[in-house]
């Protein structure tokens, strides 16, 4: 598992660094989306999770879920256009899973991408992602996870 300033950033995932989200395409063509550990560190303990409903169309860089902590409330932005196919049932009663396991049980939402082959070109992964996260943390003045 790669890390940047103490934050886990798995290098096999796709990222939108500006939105601080990760994405993973599965064999069925659905895209699982979640918050990065960096985002979780910034937000603090999540106390509420409100996803868009199954069947809704979401636009790239628009909210696909709203999360709230004691010190922050804001959107989780979809990295692609798509239709919501699944929300995480565990998070309704255990939103803290987002912080505890952001890349596993704390996934936020699953979309069926509308234009994956186009939208994927705006996502990054591997060493490029690690470098961009490091740069973002530098600009943000972030001390580390």
């Amino acid at each position: 598992m790669a890390t940047v300033r103490g934050c886990d950033i798995p290098d096999e995932l796709f990222y939108n660094v500006d939105s601080n989200v990760w994405a993973s395409l599965d064999e069925s063509g659905n895209l699982t989306i979640g918050m990065t550990s960096y985002a979780c560190s910034l937000s603090g303990q999540i106390v509420s999770y409100t996803p868009r409903k199954v069947g809704k169309l979401v636009k790239k860089n628009k909210s696909c879920a709203t999360v709230e902590s004691g010190k922050w409330v804001g959107p989780v932005k979809a990295p692609v256009d798509g239709e919501v196919v699944e929300v995480n049932p565990l998070l309704e009663t255990q939103p803290e899973l987002i912080n505890a396991d952001p890349y596993g049980q704390g996934w936020i939402i699953r979309l069926r991408p509308s234009h994956w082959s186009e939208d994927v070109t705006d996502l990054i992964s591997g060493d490029v992602a690690l470098a961009q996260f490091d740069k973002k943390m530098e600009v943000d003045g972030f001390g580390g996870c």
């Binding site: 010190k71 922050w72 409330v73 959107p75």
Partner: peptide, 8 residues
């Protein structure tokens, strides 16, 4: 500002 806040 005691809570950072962002909606659409």
């Amino acid at each position: 500002s005691f809570k950072k806040f962002h909606t659409e």
